[in-house]
Design a protein around this nucleic acid. Sequence first.
DNA 1: CTAAATGCAAAATCTTTGCAGCCTC
DNA 2: GAGGCTGCAAAGATTTTGCATTTAG
Lengths: 139, 139
Amino acid sequence: MSASPSDRGSLPRARVGERQTRQRRVISQVIRSAAGPLTVHDIHRRGQVELPALGIATVYRTVKLLLDEGLIQPVILPSGDTRYESTGLGHHHHFHCRVCDEVFDLESCPVQIPRGPFDAGFTVEDHELTLYGTCPACA
Amino acid sequence: MSASPSDRGSLPRARVGERQTRQRRVISQVIRSAAGPLTVHDIHRRGQVELPALGIATVYRTVKLLLDEGLIQPVILPSGDTRYESTGLGHHHHFHCRVCDEVFDLESCPVQIPRGPFDAGFTVEDHELTLYGTCPACA
DNA sequence: CTAAATGCAAAATCTTTGCAGCCTC
DNA sequence: GAGGCTGCAAAGATTTTGCATTTAG
C-alpha cells in the first residue's frame, strides 16, 4: 500500500462547461494535484492562492459541473465533510490519518469483496472502504 | 451476510441525561429498533409517530447527548447525510441499497484488513466499509 | 459582439442556542 | 417545589440562487 502524494494522472482534457475560464482551470488543477480528496473549503482556499478573488459560489458551481461531467466524484468520510477527487484514478480507497486529519489515496485495495448475489439476497455492486490510523509523517 | 431488521440488542440501560423523559425514551427506542443507521430527519419523523409534538431541536440535543454518553455513534455514508446507530452492535458494516436508499447493518465482515504497520508506513487501526447494491426487497 | 461565467449578496437549508413554561425526580 | 428538559423561534453555518458585470470565444 502506498500513497500518491501528487500527480493524480492527467485526464484526457474534457470539457468543463462551455467556456474555459481561469477559475475553472485553477479549480480543476487544484483537485487533480491533491494527494487525496478535498473539501469545498480546501478547494476554495487553495484556489485563492492562484486566484485571490475566487468566490466560494464559483467553487460550488464548478464542483457541481465537474460532478455532472463525471470528472470528479464525491468521497464522504466519517469526519462528516464531503470531499471531491478526480475520477479515473482507478479502483482505490482512502486512508484517513487521525493525527493530522489528512486523507490519502491508497493505490491498492487490501480487500476481497464478493460481487453478485449472495446469501441474504443482497446484491453487491460496489464497495467503499476507508482505513484509519496514522500516516507516515505523523508516525 | 445478513441484515438485522429490528431488535438491535438491548443495551444495558444506561443514563440518558439526568432525567428520563418520554422524548428521550422514544428517540432511543427509534434508534435501537431500526434496521440500520438513521438520519436526524428519520429519527424525528419516526419519533413523531409516537410523539407528534416532538421538536427537531430535541432530537438534535438528544442525539448529541447519546453520542456524548457513547450510546450511539455516527455513521457517514457517501449519500452525504450523517446517520446514527447504537453502539455495542459489534464490528459490522453497512449495505446501502441504491434503489430504496435504505441502509442496512451487515452482521458479518466480508473483508480481511491488515492491522498494524505495513509497507508505506501507514498504520491501520480501524476500517469502515460500505457495500452498495440492491437489497432483497428491491431485487 | 453575445452569452456563458463570475462575484456579490440574498435566500434556502441544516444545526445550534436562548428562553419561558412544563414535567421529572 | 427546583432544576432539568422541551418546544418555539432566533441565530449560526453551509450551500444555492438571482442579478449586474465581466470575459471567453
